[in-house]
């Protein structure tokens, strides 16, 4: 690395990297994410119409969406949807299910304890730690301000 120093090279190499098709990705994320949310809304409405109260119906919807995400992952479809939908498939709760079910499937060969169970949260783990952690902090703050 004589002529170019490392920083210059890094900038140059980054310029060489092809850019993702942002506009297409955003449109697809909007459509795919929208479809998941619409499915969620349909389930929510069905549950409410069949006699569940708001709170119960919301919980039921979340559970159903997790089931759908897990099922689509197991069938080997979710990664294909996410490839098209990007954030539209990652952000809804179905994406959370995918992030737990996919490593659980992948590491089955390493056994149910050191494989499935310990690798299950390899992707979702940080989300849980910081999600639950920050909710506790926010909860404490709101308690103090009351």
């Amino acid at each position: 690395m004589d002529k170019l120093n490392k920083r210059e090279y890094k900038e140059y190499a980054e310029k060489k990297m092809p850019k993702p098709p942002y506009v297409k990705n955003m449109i697809m994320a909007f459509i795919v994410g929208g479809i998941f949310c619409t499915i969620g809304q349909i389930i929510l409405n069905l549950m409410k119409n069949n006699g569940l109260d708001e709170k119960m119906a919301a919980a039921g919807t979340a559970i159903s969406m997790v089931l759908i995400g897990g099922l689509l992952t197991g069938l080997g479809v979710y990664d294909k949807i996410a490839k098209i939908g990007g954030a539209g498939a990652a952000v809804p709760i179905t994406g959370f299910a995918n992030s737990i079910v996919s490593p659980a499937m992948e590491f089955k060969r390493e056994g149910f304890i050191f494989g499935v169970a310990s690798k299950m949260f390899i992707i979702a783990g940080p989300v849980l730690v910081y999600g639950i952690g920050s909710s506790i902090i926010v909860g404490l703050i709101s308690l103090l301000l009351r």
Binding site: P20, G74, Y78, D79, I81, A82, K83, S102, E106, I123
Partner: peptide, 17 residues
Amino acid sequence: ERQFRYPLEYGNQRKMS
């Protein structure tokens, strides 16, 4: 993939590079 990156069925978009 499983050693260096993500589980096969994990849904993500690969970078263009």
